[in-house]
Amino acid sequence: MTDDSETAPKVRYICQTYVEKSSGRGQPSLQIDKQFQYTSAEQARERAERECRSDACAGADAYSVIEDPASGEVGEPAFIVRLGNVPEFDTF
């Protein structure tokens, strides 16, 4: 007998922040700074809003992903909020 909670897809709520890094040539690039995992979309959104108010933060995303524990695959992000300077979805 298997435990369904171990094989059921899991929703992960993430807050991810970005900083601008100078390459020494032209436009600065965005780099991931911090990632926080939460148990609800609201918690991730609130953290993104708080982080984005920091002078050191260029931007923040709050999103969810669905992970299949059996295969280890993670689906595309579903954005809850995108604040400030964030990368295009294609480069995510």
Rank of each mutant, 00 (worst) to 15 (best):
A41E: 15
E46T: 12
V19D: 09
S22G: 13
A78K: 12
A44H: 09
A70S: 08
Q27E: 14
D3E: 11
Q31A: 14
A62M: 00
C57Q: 05
I80K: 00
E73L: 11
V81P: 00
Q37C: 06
Q37G: 07
L83P: 03
S23R: 13
S23E: 15
R12A: 08
T17S: 13
Q16D: 02
P9L: 04
V11Q: 15
K10A: 04
G72S: 05
P9N: 01
K21N: 04
C15L: 06
C15H: 04
I32P: 07
L30T: 00
Y38Q: 11
S22M: 10
D3A: 12
V86Y: 04
E73F: 10
S64E: 13
G75D: 15
V11P: 05
T91L: 12
I32T: 15
I32H: 08
A56S: 09
E42P: 06
R25D: 13
D68P: 03
E46M: 09
G75F: 05
V74P: 07
E51P: 03
E20S: 11
E6C: 06
Q31C: 09
G72P: 04
K10M: 01
Q35H: 08
A41T: 07
M1K: 08
G59K: 00
Q16Y: 01
I80T: 04
Q27A: 13
E6N: 08
R25H: 12
R47G: 02
